[in-house]
């Protein structure tokens, strides 16, 4: 089998699971619809709060409505996309700890991919809907901006999955790493979700020289804040747009808020 055929197969494999998961979610309609709407509303509430906050107490460096909306939109959409397709990412630690990997190991598909895509988070479509909706309605982007938004959503989603897999895999060494994995991801995201201008001193050093978060920050920076909004922040200011794509959502999803 040549490489392109394999790729095609993977595509069909992922698509197949996505379809089956959607079908499964639709079965529990009340549950599904209510979860999607609740998540949508939840995101809206947060956005409203932070919009209100930053309007009343603006950052010295200038942090406006457009930036807040864009970041929330990309963040939610990226996280939503990640957990729509890879719903098991945040459950990986418990799957490993309970020996449920055994179910996937004998099957003729890549184990990690198979585990990740075999469940869909029921709330995730709500996040995607919120992200796209908020961006379209409030920012009213040009087509080129929308294209960039989608690109950021996808790269953000890849990052979310990658980091979650990394931290949840601690379960291989620690046994019960569910709590720790969730908290580590939450920690990482927490630092990336607020404007870096707010951090100073040793934390800043830790943030920017820690390998993984630097990678994360780089990608986040490449993402939307400076590029998408019509009146983008000054591109020279590196710290500026880091309020970014990954997600406060990840935090909210994995911690008892």
């Amino acid at each position: 089998m040549n490489k392109s055929v394999i790729k095609q197969h993977y595509g069909r494999f992922i698509w197949g699971y996505l379809l089956a998961n959607t079908q499964g979610a639709l079965e529990y309609r009340l549950s599904f619809v209510s979860q999607v709407f609740a998540m949508l509303l939840n995101d809206v509430i947060w956005l409203v709060f932070w919009l209100a906050y930053f309007t009343r107490f603006p950052l010295v460096a200038g942090w406006g409505r457009t930036e807040v909306v864009t970041l929330w939109a990309v963040t939610a959409a990226a996280f939503g996309l990640a957990t729509t397709i890879c719903g098991n990412a945040t459950r990986l630690a418990s799957i490993i700890a309970r020996g449920q990997l055994d179910v996937y190991l004998p099957l003729p598909k890549p184990v990690l991919l198979h585990v990740l895509i075999s469940t869909m988070s029921l709330t995730a479509p709500g996040d995607v809907a919120f992200g796209l909706g908020a961006y379209l309605v409030i920012i009213q982007p040009r087509p080129s901006q929308l294209g960039l938004f989608v690109l950021c959503m996808i790269t953000g989603a890849v990052l979310v999955v990658a980091f979650t897999v990394l931290t949840q895999s601690l379960a291989f060494w620690l046994g019960n790493a569910e709590g720790l994995g969730a908290q580590l991801v939450a920690a990482l995201i927490n630092f990336s979700t607020y404007p870096t201008v707010i951090f100073n001193g040793i934390v800043k050093v830790a943030l920017f020289y820690d390998h993984s978060s630097r990678l994360y920050c780089l990608c986040a920076r490449a993402a939307p804040a400076q590029l998408l909004p019509p009146n983008a922040a000054r591109p020279g200011n590196l710290h500026h747009g880091l309020w970014c794509s990954g997600g406060r959502r990840l935090l909210l999803g994995s911690t008892p808020l």
Binding site: R56, F57, P58
Partner: peptide, 28 residues
């Protein structure tokens, strides 16, 4: 496990401290 959960609390407190400072919330 309970103690582990406090990690998140510590981070939140820390982050918001920084944010409140940066936005001059206290003064306002």
């Amino acid at each position: 496990e309970l103690l582990l959960r406090t990690l998140f609390l510590i981070l939140i407190l820390f982050t918001f401290t920084q944010l409140w400072h940066a936005t001059n919330l206290g003064k306002n």
